[in-house]
Write a protein that binds this DNA or RNA. Structure first.
Lengths: 236, 236
DNA sequence: CGGTATTTTGAATCGTTTCAATGGAGGTGG
DNA sequence: CCACCTCCATTGAAACGATTCAAAATACCG
């Protein structure tokens, strides 16, 4: 547990390298890994990774594209968004069945890891390394969820939207993508549901932030204009 | 990783039993554990577990009492509450320094685990068990944070307060305490900060829920009156 | 039993939602 | 490649809900 954080490396052209790094296993002999990992699993917009009630078996690393998860219930509420480099399903380790449904927001590809037979497939040394990686990934995920809770816990709609844009940027940046220019993978309505606002409020605030010169919003294309005075807003 | 969830057992009179169960190590020989665990660490209201910037070294299991954590910054924002049976600091595994400050809300006691030398102190078999426990605990923590994010992501103040009361109850219940009758460890202002509301709004809504017969609030003593029609409110 | 911090109350202001209707983007098939 | 169609994004005005500020009452600590 004394090892430092192992970053998730996104390597668009080399799924094997990516997978090995993800698992902290860089040895050339990856035959054991092939028992538990499917690399470069393509997925279409709208397709489900898993549904509420399904048995828990796989983790998914988002390689390209992005995903959304919904809480079971009627109407289904937006629970989380998953950007490239992030892991879907790690929060369900230890549960027998998923309590939420995960869906692809765009066409993209995933890396799929079967973690139900790690003990049988890996040597003790490998298992320790993989467990350590998963523990660090779960802890990182928890920190990220705390950040997200702080975003939705802000008092005003303006602060929530500003902090949401910054949070997405930070998460893109954490995996080597630009923090200040990106494309929103989700609709205004999904943002609104996530933040506990009306869709119209999200729209009006995006417009207001734009007219103040803090961001440039062209439908789904976001640019956070430096210097990011947006940060002062989300702090307050 | 195929093992089912290991519940955290709260045993008020037997710290050793508690600790062994927590670590998934029930063998009578606990000499190795004594290198990494301090059992029954008493703590006073207002005392800090750690501050933002401190090196990350310990996890704390809340044995009795409760804790709060604040995001670094001015003014400091309420990040999380930690109830009996919950783990403080697990989200910082993999980080070198804490990014938030944890403080005891009441007099109580903690179980302290040094996880920086687990590799050196434990055998491979023990390490695998402890890592598996920590991974499941981190995943559980992430699920809990997702629930909390859903609470603060609700659209109206009334839904947020109702869901907050239910969420606390569920968390007490998960560790053997009553879900429908408990004492709030935190102030109205801390609830308000956490939920992104004004303290007066929290007070007024608690009163409104009381006058509708959904709960009984006497300062900090909460009773959720069955049948919990409160749940319908937080769903909507 | 004091003193202090927290909780509660009230009334005016401000922000957010709601509802209904228009405008624009993207996707599909001719 | 264009026309169509549908879904998503946007706008405006009225109604509602939450916040603010100031002040009083109550709980709690030592």
């Amino acid at each position: 547990m004394s090892a430092r954080h192992i970053p998730i490396v996104i390597c668009q052209n080399c799924a094997l390298y990516n997978t090995a790094r993800v698992l902290g296993l860089e040895s050339p002999d990856c035959s054991t890994l092939d028992q538990v990992v499917i690399r470069n699993h393509p997925i279409d917009r709208g397709q489900r990774l898993f549904s509420a009630g399904d048995p828990v078996r796989y983790l998914y690393l988002v390689h390209s594209g992005s995903c959304i998860s919904y809480q079971a219930g009627e109407p289904p509420k937006v629970m989380s968004f998953y950007l490239p480099g992030e892991i879907v399903g790690i929060e369900d380790i230890g549960e027998s069945h998923h309590s939420h449904t995960a869906v692809a927001l765009e066409n993209g590809s995933l890396c799929q890891l079967d973690f139900t037979h790690l003990d049988a497939s890996l040597s003790p040394e490998e298992l320790i390394r993989v467990q350590r990686y998963l523990l660090q990934a779960a802890a990182l995920h928890a920190r990220q969820l705390q950040q997200e809770r702080l975003v939705t816990g802000l008092p005003s709609a303006e602060q929530r939207v500003a902090a949401f844009l910054l949070n997405l940027g930070q998460r893109f940046q954490a995996h080597g993508l630009p923090a200040l220019a990106y494309r929103l993978p989700m609709s205004r309505e999904e943002i609104a549901d996530y933040l506990g606002l009306a869709p119209e409020t999200v729209i009006r605030i995006l417009k207001k932030l734009g007219s103040r010169g803090l961001v440039s919003i062209r439908t789904r294309q976001v640019e956070i204009l430096p210097p990011p005075a947006l940060e002062r807003l989300s702090a307050a």
